[in-house]
Design a protein around this nucleic acid. Structure first.
Lengths: 236, 236
DNA sequence: AATAATATAGCGAGCGCTCGTTTTTTTATT
DNA sequence: AATAAAAAAACGAGCGCTCGCTATATTATT
């Protein structure tokens, strides 16, 4: 196991550019025409408030059940002010989902690029996915729960995103299998199983929290379980 | 693997008393004082309609977003008629969740009672859970998705139910470990992992459907994966 | 057997309220 | 004074829910 090389959670958190402010600045610059606020400092400050409040409220009661008046209360902004930042409730949802998907994809791609063997890549992908879902746990939970309430196009994008991540694992399992490093009966099913384990970390967060299991312990356990299932011949 | 002994999906479906009518009759008899319909045949017939429609509509848009007018349209009943069967939207939710939890518990208990060794019991619990979640997939999906929107008491009941199922696996893993049949590092984490795999069947149903994976194939795969993780010494 | 009387089930307009959204007015900044 | 930003007020639609009423089925009376 090359745990040290791939880094722990703390070093991951610092290296990944995941601050809400940076994300919001990006969103603001891409939607300057639509957003009615001219000054970037003001706009970004309030966008951060809006997105954080949306994620927090949605985690409690769901996006649909969250009213824009709830959002006013939580952000300290008025109805009119909110509508200067986004054109409607549904669009707010879409903006949040799109931006999250982009970030996750970018981080996963980067993590894989710096690894060599198939097993190192699988291990890195698992760790990175669990770590990023820890940092952005509100978004991950939100994204999963709201998926079924989206419009047709948005739903397609969500499914594509799910399958994209899975495809990464399928390809790596196939590659390692061809190299004779793994012994796998069914790469597609194995990849599904891996995804299920990754998801449990943000779907059952309350459980792991209560038991005092850290994100690193969980990642270790999952990587170890996968190594048993695919009978990886470890070269350390 | 004792697949034959534990029976396939079809035989499970017939043996388990899972028809919506039976469930509704039970609910009716328990709530005779509250339900304003006197004749059992009429009441049960409409309760079936109401529960099926609720599960179907909730699967599409979520229980919160489902309006009682949607439910009127789907059941063919009027608003007034609906309120003769349940005292309010929230109570409808609670009745459905409670009844489902009871049924799952009963079926799991029965399935375990007829097995002997720890490994047979684990295998039976896994298969039974996957099979019952296939028959009642709408309920399982519903139950998972609505869990966070419940009142305090109902949320406690949902958590207790989740932990109850997990405890079954923890105990079986501990027992098999003590007998020297399994080699497990962490029974609690292993049980969590098993639960995650069980859940994937009803949370990602669309995926497995599209790939033509049957419920029996999935159960086989999961049982096999578990056997690898806990290094079970199979005695067949 | 026919009719009257009653019990049961179902209907749907309308209540008070909150929703997402728009328009108007006020406040802050330059 | 001019303009940007936010607050305040208002709108129509749709919500869960209630209630006066009708339609149907059952029982009692002749």
């Amino acid at each position: 196991m090359n745990r040290c090389k791939q880094g722990n959670f703390e070093s991951f958190k610092k290296s990944a550019a995941l601050s809400m402010e940076e994300i919001c600045r990006e969103i603001y610059q891409e939607n300057r025409d639509r957003i009615r606020i001219k000054k970037e400092t003001v706009a970004v400050k309030n966008l951060v408030k809006i997105f954080n409040a949306t994620l927090a409220l949605s985690a409690k009661k769901g996006f649909q059940a969250m009213s824009l008046r709830d959002l006013c209360r939580e952000t300290g902004l008025s109805m009119g002010a909110l509508y200067a930042y986004f054109p409607g409730k549904e669009m707010l949802l879409e903006i949040i989902l799109l931006q999250g998907r982009r970030m996750v994809k970018k981080i996963l791609d980067e993590a894989l690029a710096s690894e060599n063997t198939s097993w190192e890549k699988i291990s890195a992908a698992v760790r990175t996915h669990i770590y990023v879902s820890e940092v952005l746990h509100e978004w991950f939970f939100f994204s999963f729960m709201e998926a079924k309430n989206l419009g047709k196009e948005e739903q397609k994008a969500a499914i594509a995103s799910e399958l994209f991540t899975e495809k990464i694992f399928i390809d790596l399992l196939d590659a390692g299998s061809a190299e004779g490093i793994f012994k796998i009966e069914n790469p597609v099913m194995t990849a599904s199983l891996i995804k299920a384990m990754l998801q449990d970390w943000y779907l059952k967060r309350w459980k792991y929290r209560k038991r005092g299991i850290s994100v690193e312990e969980y990642a270790d356990f999952v990587v170890n379980a996968i190594s048993k299932i695919i009978r990886v011949a470890e070269a350390v």
